[in-house]
Design a protein around this nucleic acid. Structure first.
Lengths: 341, 341
DNA sequence: TCGGCAAAGTAGAACGTTCTACCAAGATTG
DNA sequence: CAATCTTGGTAGAACGTTCTACTTTGCCGA
């Protein structure tokens, strides 16, 4: 009323006074509760407009003991896979009142628990996490038990009883291998990735499946193993070339490895796509920019993020729903790095 | 005390009772206030450990009318430039109690004000924003006037009186052009980007500077203009090739454009790096993966994020500091797309 | 001895919502 | 016509901190 004291922020109480109702009523209007008659609602809404009221979620959070924020713990936002996954999460949160707290844990359990603690302090209504590789299932289960709706993404914790959404790594490995076999390749390398990585284990399993199905025998020498960096990928592909019976094609542990491997080939004067087939696994948009454009098995990072967010939102509504395991089917995207064209 | 009622969360009051002090004291301990004697502090801290107390920031936010969250509004997280910038922000927030609310506004003013409103409701202690291109300076100034520490990044709002950190686009344009001139090129195209974009205007200004300095004359026909998508970049480079007096080199409006342009060249049987020089502007890690590896002018997205976060943190501490304008100096990164190898 | 001051701690009212009871007044029913 | 139900609303106590303004105690100097 007094236009001379615009210092205090306008609260639900100011609205109530101005609209001639109680604060409770304003609160109910805010929550779109149908308990309130149309005319009262209208009146309150008008006042809200007029006074430029801003909802204070901190107060609501305190009172309701929850928060409209979702924690999103990933490895590294510069990795396009995670960037796309993050975009997927955002796409579903977009239309809601939820916001995301993004944090990177860099595949470090120590840091992961630190950032989780911080998320907890700030208050989150749910959590989507790509767990660090050394994560113990109890860590995730303790979070779930604590009442925080949680969805684990991409990296399946062995036996943790929580919601999960991720790719079918085995099928992806199989599809990639199958594609190369269909193109007539008999000696196919698998480049990079760390031996203990569950993703790699599954992809290799798929690779072996496809080999076996085609009556080709598995040669361990063709499976190079290393941290999946660009530098290692270059080394690995060259090691493969140096074998007594060298491969004519290779699967990259991921797109990055595959792209770097193409560089490695050229350093040896081998032209990828023409003299050697390369296929990646990931399907990030980077693959399209490579030259030759990378044939790859898309894991649908965006959809993983989307589904994970949907799952968390559902669990927020119904905390005791039975846990879901969502496995997304990969897709082969044929471009030119395997010579088809 | 009663171990049979573990349902309620443990609060500062429980700690106080257990440690035989008042809640005020516990609060002071939490804030590391030196008002409290060493032994009392120790006692309280022990109890905190023992009971597994978790600080409730929502309550603190409500009381203090602020929040330890920083809003980060960007265009699109899948763009490596923004991903790197985000990582830069995280790198400084890392050691603090701040967390970031990440939101994408997709260069849409409408959406931008919606997400800002949402950030406001959730409560933020500061804001870093890459403003949508149609953003009015008043929008930013109103935020600052409202008391929210704000730092604008990358895209300079004309005359808005706020903190800003961004690249020197003009110098970047000059450096790119200069490099090509030094390599002996006389006809240099500038590919893509929208005419009204301030970044492009500045980069073109730098391009003209360098041309003039070298005694070369500016030919508007060599400046192609379009939304900087991959498809447009391919079209633009081909248009350039079709000119009566075609260029022998080109500057991409950004790295993405440059990489796509290389594809465009190859579609015409022109080998980038050997028969035509291409240089980008951005310096995201993608450039390294391209083939040939892209020579580019690095704008240091990571550092922009880092500085922006530092500026916001400083302004949170000292709200009335004079506004700063931080301009980061670009760097030429020579790889092989201009033939120098 | 007394006034003053520093050190260490405390009381208690906020902060802005939500939500469980509760209430008043019509409408409906037997 | 009394009993019950429905509709539309309200009172007021939380939620867990923070922070201003005390209080208490001991010490010091005059």
């Amino acid at each position: 009323m007094n236009e001379l004291t615009p210092l205090r922020r306008v609260t639900i109480i100011d609205i109530a006074r101005e609209a001639g109702v109680s604060p409770s009523t304003v609160s109910l209007v805010l929550q779109k509760n149908e308990r309130i008659s149309a005319e009262t609602r209208q009146r309150v809404e008008d006042v809200i407009q007029r006074l430029g009221y801003k909802y204070n979620r901190s107060a609501a959070n305190l009172r309701r003991q929850t928060s409209q924020a979702i924690g999103l713990i990933i490895n590294d936002i510069c990795n396009p896979f995670f960037a796309e996954m993050t975009a997927g999460v955002q796409s579903v949160l977009q239309g809601t009142d939820f916001l995301v707290f993004l944090v990177e844990a860099g595949d470090d359990v120590e840091r992961q628990s630190r950032v989780y603690r911080s998320l907890e302090e700030h208050g989150i209504g749910g959590l989507i996490i790509f767990p660090a590789s050394e994560t113990k299932p109890e860590f995730l289960e303790r979070i779930a038990a604590g009442g925080t709706p949680i969805c684990v993404a991409v990296r399946r914790p062995p036996d943790a009883d929580v919601d999960y959404v991720g790719p079918d790594n085995r099928l992806a490995g199989r599809m990639a291998t199958r594609h190369l076999i269909d193109l007539g390749h008999k000696r196919i390398a698998f480049l990079s990735g760390e031996a203990h990585s569950p993703a790699r284990i599954d992809r290799i399993a798929g690779y072996r499946d496809a080999l076996q199905r085609a009556g080709l025998k598995f040669d361990p020498a063709l499976c190079l193993e290393s941290r999946p960096t660009r530098a290692n990928a270059i080394i690995d592909v060259q090691k493969a070339l140096d074998l007594k019976d060298p491969p004519t094609a290779a699967i990259g542990y991921n797109d990055n490895v595959a792209i770097a491997a193409m560089h490695g080939l050229r350093l040896r004067g081998v032209e990828p796509g023409r003299q050697f087939a390369i296929i990646g696994i990931d399907g990030t948009s980077d693959a399209e920019l490579a030259h030759p454009a990378l044939t790859t098995v898309a894991l649908h990072a965006h959809d993983i993020g989307r589904r994970a967010a949907e799952l968390v939102l559902e669990r927020i509504k119904a905390p005791s729903r039975v846990h879901e395991n969502v496995i997304l089917r990969p897709n082969l995207i044929v471009r030119s790095s395997c010579g088809s064209r």
